[in-house]
Simulated scan of single mutants.
Amino acid sequence: MRDLDGGRIFRVATPGSKYSVPKFDLSTAEGAAKALTNPNGEVRYLAWTALHEMGAKAVPALEKLWKGENPRHRARALWALGKMEGKGQGVVNAALADADPDIRITGIRLARQLDLDLIDTVSKIVMDKSAAVRREASIALRFDGSAKANALWADLALQHDGKDRWYLEALGIGSDLHADARFAAWLAKAGKKWNSDGGRDVVWRVRSKQAPAFLARIIKDKSLKDHASPRYMRSFDFHNGEEKNKALESLLDL
């Protein structure tokens, strides 16, 4: 019953094994870099703090780790290097050009945390072959309502294949605060191709004032296999205003 108040930590090990706490030399860059590869979060925190305090002296050890083969270790080195004074942009550029999509994603997140130019960042990977990287790019644009951000988001939306629900939600997150401008930019680029599997998903997800009219067009189009899908009607629940009312009224004669 005492577990309810204090709790316990159980360590499962083979018979005869001895519990030992490894020691790390955090006084040197090499030792701290090695500790940064440890799976224990507390050890990594102490290592990162030590490396950050060393500043430029820690760069060679971190660059060696960054050039290694373990993707997790590389990402940790990348993050530590990016936080070094004057190195942020260069580290982000290197990450965005990396062959590993997870490293490119880390580069986008680092750019956001360092408050770098996200338009420049996203421009470099807007046509990335990895959907996961493009998802991260859409999320990164969330708070930018500029015309350039709208155009980049539209390019990302055009690459939705209608199958990746995670990609669709990332587009939604990237558009929610600027739905009307995002939707208009996408329509301008999509043209007649808006009525594709991916395009109908965008209409379903984006909360633009223009979307209800397009939802009605989808529902009316009996040539589409999914025109009667209940999800298109449910999408109206997330809209308000006269545009929604007019679109619903247009469906009364079905």
Rank of each mutant, 00 (worst) to 15 (best):
R8F: 12
R11Q: 14
P15W: 10
S17W: 13
S17I: 13
S17T: 15
Y19P: 03
K23V: 15
T28S: 15
N40F: 08
E42T: 14
L46Q: 15
E53C: 01
M54N: 10
K57M: 10
A58C: 12
A61C: 13
L62T: 10
W66P: 00
K67P: 01
K67I: 00
N70E: 13
R72G: 09
W79Q: 10
A80Q: 10
L81F: 08
L81R: 09
G82I: 04
M84N: 13
M84A: 13
E85Y: 07
G86T: 13
K87V: 05
A95G: 05
A97I: 07
P101N: 09
P101D: 09
I103D: 02
I105E: 04
R109K: 14
A111N: 10
Q113K: 15
L116E: 08
D117T: 04
D117I: 05
I119P: 04
D120F: 02
T121P: 01
V122C: 07
S123W: 02
I125W: 02
V126H: 11
D128K: 05
D128Y: 02
A132P: 00
V133R: 03
R134I: 05
R135Q: 13
R135K: 14
A137W: 04
L141K: 05
G145T: 10
S146H: 09
S146P: 11
L152E: 01
A154M: 03
L158T: 03
L158F: 01
H160I: 02
D164S: 08
D164P: 02
R165E: 13
A170N: 05
G172E: 08
G172D: 02
I173E: 12
H178V: 04
H178S: 03
H178G: 01
A179N: 07
F183C: 07
A184Y: 03
A184D: 15
A185L: 07
A188V: 07
A190C: 08
A190L: 09
A190G: 09
G191C: 06
K193F: 01
S196L: 06
D197Q: 09
G198F: 03
G199I: 08
D201P: 00
D201F: 01
V203H: 02
V203S: 02
W204F: 11
K209H: 11
K209C: 03
P212G: 06
P212L: 04
A213C: 03
A213L: 04
F214A: 07
I218Q: 06
S223P: 01
A228D: 14
R231L: 12
R231V: 15
S235C: 11
F236M: 10
F238Y: 15
H239F: 10
K244Y: 06
K246W: 06
L248C: 09
L251K: 13
L251G: 08
L252W: 04
L254A: 05
